[in-house]
Design a protein around this nucleic acid. Structure first.
Lengths: 107, 107
DNA sequence: TATTATTATCGTAATATTGCAATATAATAT
DNA sequence: ATATTATATTGCAATATTACGATAATAATA
């Protein structure tokens, strides 16, 4: 087929995979790193810094926003994207749990 | 276009994204979880447990192997895939560093 | 209210991923 | 040697992702 058979897997497995998918693009890693370094985020800055077109950046931001990692507020005339600290902590936890729960009792 | 412009990003950013991409499928999450629970891994078991076809499982295993997360040895007549403990720790570290280095000094 | 600047959406093309049937290969057992 | 079992590879179809130009929507300001 081509579509992932998500229904065959648990909610937890699908959620972790979904978050991983958002992190599975260097542009989105770069965007998150850049936002975290700034006091404010202005999309137009991202276009210059990342080096992709404005629509592409906008789409990447949307992917990140979909999993709740960004919250946006208005400041002056520019939309300000910020890291959602609570959600960020949740995801860090999810990944850490996944990595920690793996055993090596094989072979 | 359609292809990711990986050359625009740092090695670290690309590497993290590449690992995330492997984790970005619930089947591969499930496979890793299953292998970690077993003393031995036999691919044919995975086909039953995961519920995807043998070629599909084989391909997923290959993706996981590509980033060094599995090591395979022969045991009896079956190839035994195991978690590469050292590599696993490295990746856990990479993700943890990424999550920890993010600041929330915005907005 | 018009202008300007910024962000979002639409449409489309190129590439990547996912999945499986068919087939090939490798290892073991008889 | 041959049959059996397990895994890998090939080929192909369906779907998803990535990217950008064109355009629309939104908001501040002149």
């Amino acid at each position: 087929m081509g579509a992932s058979k998500t229904h065959m897997f648990s909610v937890t497995q699908n959620e972790l995979a979904q978050v991983a998918k958002v992190l599975a693009h260097p542009a989105r890693i770069a965007i998150l790193e850049y936002i975290s370094r700034q006091e404010n985020c202005i999309c137009n800055d991202l276009v210059d810094v990342i080096g992709l077109s404005q629509p592409t950046i906008s789409q990447h931001l949307n992917e990140i926003k979909k999993i709740g990692l960004l919250k946006g507020t208005f400041e002056g005339k520019n939309l300000c994207y910020c890291i959602n600290e609570e959600r960020w902590g949740e995801l860090q936890n999810s990944f850490n749990t996944f990595f920690t729960n793996i055993n090596y009792n094989c072979c």
